[in-house]
Amino acid sequence: MAEFEPKIVAFLCNWCTYAGADLAGTSRIQYPPNVRVIRLMCSGAVDPMYIIRALIEGIDGVLIGGCHPGDCHYINGNYKARRRITILKTLLKEMGIDENRVWLRWISASEGQLFANTIKDIVTKMKELGPNPMRNYWGT
């Protein structure tokens, strides 16, 4: 049987992590092709609903990428994202959905290598966790 290849969705801030991903691409830094990128204007624009939707559909891992603390273009979107994601992870944990499937990371426009490494790490970790059991449930 072929090795399990986790599917990852990445919600990336336009100003930092998205540009970081771009840099990783243009600098030809290798990283696993498991990730689908969705660009948003700020990590603070990620409604938990998007993440919940992805997890319910059976996505194995979710990355939310934002600017480093102090660097958010909307001043505090990333700090607010951190609170929202904390609530989400607290609830997921209680519901028996592994909260380690959700990653919030600060990656700047110049950190192409960090972006690539983060993707490698999340893919490795999701391989350890195995497929998201939600993919087997349709009664959602």
Partner: peptide, 28 residues
Amino acid sequence: RWAKKKGILRMPTDTLLFHITRMNHMIT
């Protein structure tokens, strides 16, 4: 498309999505 993914889809959709999202928005 969704039905194809899991082979079957509960209708109407989004039952858990609604409850878990509402929770995230207001539970504090």
